[in-house]
């Protein structure tokens, strides 16, 4: 494999891991409520921006990151409590529009709380590239990949090994029947927003040292995470992860061999192809169920 291709693959994997985390956030909320949360990208933005400003306030990096993640989770909980829960009983489309409104509101709020400039954040552990098979990889990329693998493993264990994780899965299959088991599905929904915000915030913290951040960085990251979820089959967490890497690698290969002008279009071309030829997603199950 040429060093050049390896280079593109590494940058694709790094971006893909971020899209995977964002896509997982979409899937988790979709499973709990069939709602597509278009404020998912804003969680990424808040995670990154809050870390940047807490670092600027002089806090040590681990503390700044922890506080930023907690703050983002609080925003996720507030979003569910103040915007989604009061509209309980409204149609799914209404709820989706509410999340679009919330994303615009959060971007506006970010401009007021912070500003409209781009900000950067130092990488976790230095910026001397490491040579892997001729490709040079910044240490932050390894952080992104390592953390993503750890998070995916933790989520897998949570959903497959814990009682509450299985209760969330049961709610995603049939929320009425889940209630008949004694599962509090309102709490499941609240928890899903918190978990999606957590994943978004971590994605924001991980990627900010590589890409810079500002108040609207969440728009594009959110859309790419959404394409990851669609490519993998909406509501299929493992699909969202695979979808994230498909989108990330396709993007970096296009940028490398065709032109970086088309980089952002790749995600949308992939969405269109999937929707035309395999609407249930690459790994989605068909809508049919045995009665």
């Amino acid at each position: 494999m040429s060093a050049e291709l390896l280079q593109f693959i590494f940058s694709g994997l790094t971006a893909g891991a971020i899209y995977a985390l964002v896509g997982l956030g979409f899937s988790i909320i979709y499973n709990a409520s069939q709602v597509i949360n278009f404020a998912q990208g804003e969680f990424v933005m808040i995670g990154g921006m809050a870390t940047v400003s807490l670092l600027a306030a002089g806090l040590p990096m681990p503390v700044a990151i922890a506080l930023a993640v907690v703050a983002t989770v609080a925003v996720g909980i507030a979003l569910e409590k103040l915007a989604i829960e009061p509209a309980r009983g409204a149609s799914i489309v209404t709820l989706i529009i509410i999340t679009i409104g919330a994303s615009i509101f959060l971007r506006g709020l970010a401009q007021v709380v912070w500003d409209r400039n781009f900000h950067s954040m130092p990488p976790f552990t230095g910026d001397t590239p490491i040579n892997i098979g001729g490709a040079s990889v910044v240490p932050q990329s390894l952080w992104v990949l390592g953390c993503t693998v750890a998070i995916v493993a933790a989520l897998w264990a949570f959903f497959n090994r814990t009682r509450f994780g299985k209760a969330i899965l049961a709610t995603s299959y049939n929320s009425d029947i889940a209630r008949l088991m004694g599962i509090n599905v309102r709490f499941v929904l609240l928890f899903s927003f918190a978990l999606a915000a957590l994943l978004g915030a971590i994605a924001g913290v991980l990627i900010t040292p590589i890409i810079l951040t500002n108040y609207q960085v969440g728009v594009l990251l959110g859309l790419k995470g959404f394409s990851a979820a669609i490519v993998g089959g909406l509501g299929n967490p493992m699909g969202a992860i695979a979808g994230g890497f498909v989108v990330g690698i396709a993007e970096s290969i296009t940028a490398g061999y065709v032109s970086s002008d088309y980089k952002d279009a790749v995600a949308f071309v992939i969405i269109l192809l999937v929707l035309f030829f395999r609407p249930q997603g690459l790994f989605g199950r068909r809508g049919a169920e045995r009665v």
């Binding site: 009682r163 299985k166 209760a167 899965l169 049961a170 299959y173 049939n174 009425d176 029947i177 889940a178 209630r179 008949l180 088991m181 004694g182 599962i183 509090n184 599905v185 169920e289 045995r290 009665v291």
Partner: peptide
């Protein structure tokens, strides 16, 4: 969900088991 804790338990029409989950997981739920 609180009525279940009090002891009212319904077997729903059309069975409605959690199809993708194992038999044992259904029982545990």
């Amino acid at each position: 969900e609180r009525r279940v804790r009090k002891g009212i338990v319904q077997v729903p029409e059309g069975r409605q088991v959690f199809g993708p989950m194992s038999v044992e997981d259904n029982l545990r739920l």
